[in-house]
Every structure is written in structure tokens, then in C-alpha cells.
Design a protein around this nucleic acid. Structure first.
Length: 501
RNA sequence: GGCCCGGUGGUCAAGCGGCUAAGACACCGCCCUUUCACGGCGGUAACACGGGUUCGAUUCCCGUCCGGGUCACCA
């Protein structure tokens, strides 16, 4: 088999130089892990901080695991998170295509090149033989059975159409690679298997495709999860085999999950039902809050902003620094995400918040007479995530069944008797109020309390219980009555009086 | 199990030979207050352990323990 050298030269000629280029290379599984999101974010930030290019590449070489529409999930997630890419399957670019299955022809050529150099070889071993090897020793490396095949034997097998894979021949000695986070790491090559580069279906393995693509796309910083740390020596060996420049490795520690129920800490994984980005969004978390929180999971700003924890994307771009990435794994904490989300919700303008909240309010409050914007105003400081909303406002549509014991409250100095009296006193005042506004209702009630010689709470407590039928409500008596309207307020007060009588 | 990487309060973390060891979440008080929140003030709580190196170790080295990762024709 001969290879046209000029083809390789052309591929080399396309590679951009002189700028920082990073890539996020997910496989389309239809699911964005929080850990993946963080990796994507760091990758993006490294490129943007340096004024370089951020590239999206789809790694779909595992035909058995393809998921329909999964690529759309990736696009949508990244867009919502503000991670815009300069080159990718949909926008193109100088070193495309950006989907690995569309690049399938090129990997084989590079593998052939390695065979010519004597650094890789065809392996015809059957799965059965490999299994046998592992039966004797589960940790056995490939025994290089096919390395000793003569050219004639190989040709005969090829002619016979026997399936084969291409393996890299790992040299003797040891391999040292440098990682920007972990420093220098050395491993004995004896630990490394003669890894498969090209599978028997002709497609490259992830490890091989990754190196080829990263090189051909001019990637300068290879950012990925720490689970790839032990594969890094193999990557180095491949770069060395080709004589290519080795990029800067940036391995990020894994994200653990701090289960709020059991308190257990373990690696975050879909199979345990740990939340994905999509799960969080559907639970009413804001993308910016998630991104901001995730940015701080395994990275911390340094210097005079070491104490800052709220960042816009632009601020993250300005502040991000590889030196601030931590080596130890960190636990995803829902409580702290709640805090970030609550803070982001509160930082919204009342109009923006109402827009976000309205669908959630309408899940529980179907009655259009009750103003969603007014209800939203009560909620903004009182929810950590939008999904908290429905159960907080369900009393608007339907007054819950409640017991008279709710009327007794020590701090407000109310008992059933006192409450009954307060409701009787309040009803005519509200009935006669000309203006049903917040201020007017509030003014009238405060005036009445003063006239009766009771503290505000003594008057307000029973009114709120009668209006809402709940001990805890977003907003006070005045706000709730205002939204309910005069007729409904008086109707509910009358019910309260009946209960108490 | 072999190899690799980690180990500062419950969690996220600053620290990069000399500090009363930051800050944030959570938790607990107090204040504010028409409930609950929000906001304000204050508090409890940490350098895994044992050896070195050093005048001096959270910081450097070694060991132990613990945790994680990885050992596929998966990515």
C-alpha cells in the first residue's frame, strides 16, 4: 500500500498557527453532565481569555451508542450557557469537517503512515483469542501475537478478507508528559497496552481520533477531565510517533455529587439520577446561575478578586487562569447552587423575574383575575428556584381546608377569640374602603390597629390566615388581600368568622 | 490488585516556609418585621496521621491511612 505524501502535506498546510485554539469534543449521548459543562466552560474560557478560537467537534465514532437529536442537545445547551463556538459542524471553519464520522477516511491514512514507520501493526487476533488471554490474567496486556507476522502472512490474511485492527507499537522505556494542572507525570511504558488505533469496522478509537483531530485542527490546549490523565502517556507516544508538537494538556479533576438526602459523596453520574444541566433548567435554575456556580467548582480566582464569586461571562473570561484550577475533586452542592440561583433570581428586574415566574405561577393559579406580576413580586425574594413557586401560591385559587388552631399565634398575641374579634372589626373597614390599593389597605389596617390599641401583628395575623388558610405565605395580609380583590377577601373573612364562631 | 492523581471546617475554597489559617454556602443566635423570606450583625467549625528537612512547617521530602481515576475493537 503506498501513500501519497502530498496529501499529508496538504493536511498540514491547513493547520492554523499563532493563536490559542481549544476544542470541546463531546460525544452525542443526548445528555450534558454537569462535569462536561464545566469542562466545556473552562475550555471556552481559556480560548476567550487568550483571544483565541473555540471549536466544537462531535465525536461520534461509537456507532453503537448514537442517540438521535443528541447533537441538538449539545448545541442548545452551549448556546443557552453562552458558550459560542467559532468553528464547528454547523458554522464550518478552515479545518473541517467537525464531525468525526465525516472524517473517517483520514484516520486510516494516518494509521497506515504509522505502519510504514514501523510504529503500528495490523492485528488479526479474534475476540475469542483475546478473551482467552484475559481469562488467564485479567490484567494481561496484548501479547503482540500479530507483531511477528511475516509480510507474506499478512498479505495472505488481507487477501482472504480477514478482519483486523491496527495497533500502536508501544516502545520500551518510560514516558513523561507535562500537564498544566498536575505538572510532570512519568509512567513506565510497560504499563501501557499496544492500543488499538483503528477498529475492525474501520473507524478510529477515541484515543486515536482525538490525537489526529487535535493536531489537524491546530489545538494548542487540550482540556479534558482527569479520567483521561492515565491515557495521556499514550497520546504523547502518538504525537511523538508522528513527530508532532505536543499541545498543552489541561486535565480537570472530576465533579463529585453531594447527595442532599443521604449526605453521600460520590462521582456525579447519570445512573444515580444526579442532575444534568437539562434537569437543572427544568427544575427552574437559571443558566447563568448554573454556569457561575459550576465555574467555581474546581477553579478559584486569584489575587485581588480571590473573594469574588459572582461573575458575568465577560468577567469570567477576564479572570480565568489555568493556574487557578485545582487538582482535587470537588463536590457539587445543591445548597450552594440554590444560593447562587436565588441570588440571580433576585438580581433580575421585577419585569424580568415576572416573565420567568409567570409560567410557574400559572401552574397553580389558573384564575386570570389574580395578577401574575403582583404575585411574582411577592415571590422574587422568596424562592431559590422557580419550581419552588407553585406550592407557595396554590392558596390563591382555592382556599385550603384549615383548622382554627392556625389563628392562635403567640408572637402576634392572637387566640381564636382575639382573631374572631379582629376579623369582625376589620370586615366593615375593608368593605367601606374606596381604594383597593396596597397603600390604602395598609393605611386603613394600621389605623384600625392603633384605634383598637393592638399591635399590627394582632390584626394582620388573623386576616392573613383567613385570606390564605396557611400559616406561611409569600407576602403578608395586605399584599394577599390586594391580589384576591375585595369580594374574595370579604368572602374568605366571612368563612373565617364562621369557623371561629 | 498494578499504575496514576489527590487530602485546609459538613460543602466550595484562599494560602504557595513565619498569618490570631481569608471568604462563601449550610447551620446556630440576635436585629428588622403583618407570617415566611429578603436585608443587617454576631457565632460554632479545618490544615488526615507519623517521620524527616529547617531557626521555623498547612506550605518541601518520605511513609501510612483515606478518597478518586484508570487498566475495552467506550468515549
Amino acid at each position: 500500500m503506498s501513500i501519497d505524501k502530498s496529501w499529508f502535506d496538504e493536511m498540514e498546510a491547513r493547520i492554523p498557527h499563532g493563536e490559542v485554539r481549544t476544542r470541546f469534543a463531546p460525544s452525542p449521548t443526548g445528555y450534558m453532565h454537569v462535569g462536561n459543562l464545566r469542562t466545556a466552560l473552562y475550555t471556552y474560557l481559556i480560548a476567550r481569555h487568550a483571544g483565541g478560537k473555540f471549536i466544537l467537534r462531535i465525536e461520534d465514532t461509537d456507532q453503537g451508542r448514537l442517540v438521535a437529536d443528541a447533537v441538538d442537545v449539545i448545541y442548545a445547551t452551549m448556546r443557552r450557557c453562552g458558550l459560542t463556538w467559532d468553528e464547528g459542524p454547523d458554522v464550518g471553519g478552515p479545518v473541517g469537517p467537525y464531525i468525526q464520522t465525516e472524517r473517517r477516511d483520514l484516520y486510516g491514512k494516518y494509521a497506515e503512515l504509522l505502519i510504514e514507520k514501523g510504529l503500528a501493526y495490523r492485528c488479526f487476533c479474534s475476540e475469542e483469542r483475546l478473551e482467552e488471554l484475559h481469562r488467564d490474567d485479567p490484567n494481561a496486556k496484548y501479547d503482540r501475537h500479530c507483531l511477528s507476522l511475516s509480510p507474506e502472512e499478512i498479505q495472505a490474511k488481507l487477501d482472504a478478507g480477514e478482519p483486523y485492527v491496527i495497533r500502536q507499537r508501544i516502545p520500551e522505556g518510560s514516558t513523561t508528559f507535562h500537564d498544566a494542572v498536575y505538572g510532570d507525570i512519568t509512567v513506565d511504558n510497560a504499563e501501557l497496552d499496544d492500543q488499538i488505533l483503528i477498529k475492525s469496522d474501520g473507524l478510529p478509537t477515541y484515543n486515536f481520533a482525538n490525537v489526529i483531530d487535535d493536531h489537524l485542527m491546530g489545538i494548542t490546549h487540550v482540556v479534558r477531565g482527569a479520567e483521561y490523565l492515565s491515557s495521556a502517556p499514550k497520546y504523547n507516544l502518538l504525537y511523538e510517533a508522528f513527530g508532532w508538537e505536543i499541545p498543552t494538556y489541561v486535565h480537570c479533576s472530576s465533579v463529585m455529587f453531594n447527595d442532599p438526602v443521604t449526605g453521600a459523596v460520590r462521582k456525579m453520574a447519570k445512573r444515580y439520577g444526579d442532575p444534568s444541566y437539562q434537569d437543572l433548567v427544568s427544575q427552574g435554575y437559571l443558566s447563568q446561575a448554573v454556569v457561575n456556580y459550576v465555574s467555581l467548582l474546581g477553579w478559584a480566582p486569584r489575587g485581588d478578586i480571590a473573594e469574588q464569586e459572582f461573575f458575568t461571562m465577560d468577567e469570567l473570561i477576564a479572570a480565568f487562569d489555568i493556574a487557578g484550577i485545582s487538582k482535587s475533586p470537588s463536590a457539587f452542592d445543591m445548597e450552594k447552587l440554590n444560593y447562587f440561583n436565588a441570588t440571580y433570581l433576585r438580581s433580575l428586574s421585577p419585569e424580568e423575574f415576572a416573565k420567568e415566574a409567570e409560567p410557574w405561577i400559572r401552574q397553580a393559579v389558573k384564575n386570570e383575575a389574580y395578577d401574575a406580576a403582583a404575585i411574582a413580586a411577592l415571590l422574587q425574594a422568596r424562592c431559590e428556584k422557580l419550581s419552588d413557586i407553585p406550592e407557595k401560591v396554590d392558596f390563591f385559587d382555592a382556599l385550603p381546608e384549615y383548622g382554627v388552631e392556625l389563628y392562635t399565634n403567640k408572637k402576634s398575641k392572637t387566640t381564636g377569640e382575639v382573631s374572631l374579634e379582629m376579623l369582625k372589626q376589620t370586615a366593615p373597614v375593608l368593605a367601606g374602603l374606596e381604594d383597593w390599593s396596597q397603600d390604602a389597605i395598609h393605611g386603613a389596617l394600621v389605623e384600625l390597629a392603633e384605634k383598637l390599641g393592638v399591635k399590627n401583628a394582632t390584626l394582620m395575623w388573623p386576616l392573613r390566615i383567613a385570606a390564605a388558610g396557611k400559616a406561611v405565605t409569600p407576602g403578608g395580609a395586605v399584599e394577599i388581600c390586594r391580589i384576591l380583590g375585595r369580594d374574595e377577601t370579604l368572602r374568605r373573612m366571612k368563612l373565617g368568622v364562621e369557623k371561629l364562631s
